[in-house]
Design a protein around this nucleic acid. Structure first.
Lengths: 138, 138
DNA sequence: CAGTATTTGCAAATTTGTCGCAATAATCTA
DNA sequence: TAGATTATTGCGACAAATTTGCAAATACTG
């Protein structure tokens, strides 16, 4: 994991610094995080500006990317680390869950775009609703 | 159209005011707009703060909703006015095109979510790539 | 049309994201 | 591994985006 990180950084000529490792640590194996969350979790270690710069750099290096959810956006590691997937966003508790990609669905999405004379390069599917926990009768 | 607008507002106990009509007019029948665009188009008629408040109110009343595209978000009228559809976002020219919903695709999305023990209430699919115009050989 | 409740504009305050630059840490070379 | 070179960080100042309080204006009700 760290090796992949190092490799992706090196590919772009970036170095693996302490702040970058910290930000990566905050993202690894967690649900997508908002900027505020990342900044909060690293507040005593890294400056706000560095967090923004790091995220931007991670995006350029294909390490992390933005996920648009409702108003805000959240950051998560790319499919290199997480595999391609979509998201289930619970409108009750605000959590975001990964939904493993379904090959048939992927194909259909590309097909539908192509039929509209559009050359698809990627997509993002966000499903809104209630997670298992929030739809339980209280 | 205006009647539907009035009805949706009344349903929530909101009144149909001049500023709300103006904002509605800016959104009706157009591509999704960014906040900056809406504010710009109404600058000499409505205060910025009112635009923000109106959009928020439109969201609550199911009149308009936010569409997340790349970094920014855009506003468009809901399916009540526009029908359910997805979006093709051209990464070259930045335009956003509607993609009429495909029933089979819709079904598959709901199914996939349900299988993950999630109760889907809606979804948003953004496809990124090149529009017909931008993929032409120049 | 008056009375009441809602909504607006304005100005100020927050929040969010960016930038320049000197200090610091990482990388490279010998 | 020391020393030179380059990339990166923290800090403070900015700039942009969004929110809020409140008095004045507008819409709705009877």
């Amino acid at each position: 994991m760290i090796n992949t990180l190092r490799a992706l950084l090196k590919q772009k000529g970036y170095s693996l610094t302490k702040p970058r490792l910290i930000v990566f640590g905050v993202l690894a194996g967690k649900e997508p995080q908002t900027m505020a969350e990342i900044i909060g979790l690293t507040a005593n270690k890294i400056d706000r500006a560095t967090v923004y710069r790091t995220i931007e750099l991670f995006e350029q290096a294909g390490i992390a990317h933005r996920l648009n959810i409702g108003f805000k956006y959240k950051i998560e590691l790319t499919e290199v680390f997480n595999g391609h997937h979509h998201h289930l966003h619970c409108t009750a508790c605000g959590r975001t869950f990964p939904l493993p990609a379904n090959p048939m669905l992927e194909t259909m999405i590309d097909t539908v775009a192509s039929k509209a004379d559009f050359a698809p390069r990627g997509h993002q599917l966000e499903i809104y609703g209630l997670c298992q926990n929030c739809s339980k009768p209280s």
